[in-house]
């Protein structure tokens, strides 16, 4: 098992785009080859070696393929498009982390910027911190956001988490900003704390499960349907437990179920966990 370790030397003065830094690209490369990889800093093409100390060494089996160290808040597109391997960032990251990723695992020990896991198709993202707006969402003009995979954010997220997603699972342990699950076409968003206003607005299908309970600021286009203990929640709970983030609300909990958005056909659901 080889690990490529990149340690940030200094924070660039403007933002950088680092979609080259994924296991798919660095795997099998020597330190020198990794140093020569391009890195867009502002509008200049520079190299990874200009900004990072690069070490390639043999490591224990559990170590990631790619380890980044430092405050990478100025680095956008980390883990973008990765399809395999394990990537760990010890620090904050900028926009688009894990966007369009289709496999492997991306772990961020720090806060993430906007568009975390946008258009994600598979794999797993764990953020130990907060994330910005548009987690798992669609880019401008697109109809469909996340299509598969799992995202866990241990902190809170901004607005529009899961916007236009079609499949996959997003678990926010903390709170979510406005319009969680906006225009969802399918998939599941779980909010551990409280969502702000307009949860599920314009949702077509899919589920937003709120563990923090009521009251919810639901739109008038949602109607109460029933109170029940859905099997589906056991599956979700099991999956989250498997990735090491079992929700504190148990697998047998009952939810109040609201159907909507009736303006889009009304086949989506917002679930509110009931205490006890």
């Amino acid at each position: 098992m080889r690990t490529v370790t990149l340690t940030l030397k200094a924070e660039p003065p403007v933002s950088a785009e680092a979609e080259q830094l994924i296991p798919d690209v660095v795997a099998g490369k020597t330190a020198e080859e990794v140093r020569r990889l391009p890195l867009l800093v502002g509008n200049r093409r520079e190299t990874v070696g200009d900004w990072f100390d690069v070490v390639v060494d043999e490591a224990e089996a559990a170590a990631p393929d790619l380890l980044l160290r430092g405050d990478l808040v100025r680095f956008k597109r980390l883990g973008e498009g990765m399809s395999r391997g394990a990537m760990v960032v010890e620090g904050r990251v900028g926009f688009h982390a894990g966007a369009r990723m289709s496999g492997g695992s991306l772990t961020i020990a720090g806060d993430a910027g906007d568009f975390l896991g946008a258009h994600m198709a598979g794999g797993r993202i764990i953020v130990r911190g907060d994330a910005g707006h548009y987690v798992a969402a669609a880019y401008r003009g697109e109809k469909t956001g996340m299509k598969g995979g799992t995202i866990v954010v241990t902190g809170s997220v901004g607005q529009m988490v899961g916007a236009r997603m079609r499949r996959g699972l997003v678990y926010v342990q903390g709170d979510a900003g406005d319009v969680a699950g906006y225009n969802m076409k399918g998939g599941t968003v779980v909010v551990g704390g409280a969502p702000a206003a307009r949860v599920g607005a314009r949702m077509v299908r899919g589920t937003v499960a709120v563990l923090g309970g009521e009251p919810l600021e639901l739109l008038p286009t949602f109607s109460y349907a029933c109170t029940y203990a859905p099997t589906f929640w056991r599956v979700v709970h099991h999956e989250l437990a498997r990735v090491g983030h079992a929700p504190r609300v148990g697998p047998g909990v009952t939810f109040r179920r609201y159907c909507g958005d009736v303006n889009e056909g009304g086949r989506g659901e917002v679930l509110a966990a009931q205490p006890g």
């Binding site: 307009r198 607005a201 639901l218 739109l219 008038p220 286009t221 109607s223 109460y224 009736v262 303006n263």
Partner: peptide
């Protein structure tokens, strides 16, 4: 909220 409601009312949808 109001625009959402108007959409439902115009189309005669059941509201909650």
């Amino acid at each position: 909220e109001t625009a959402t409601l108007l959409r439902a009312l115009v189309a005669g949808k059941r509201i909650g």
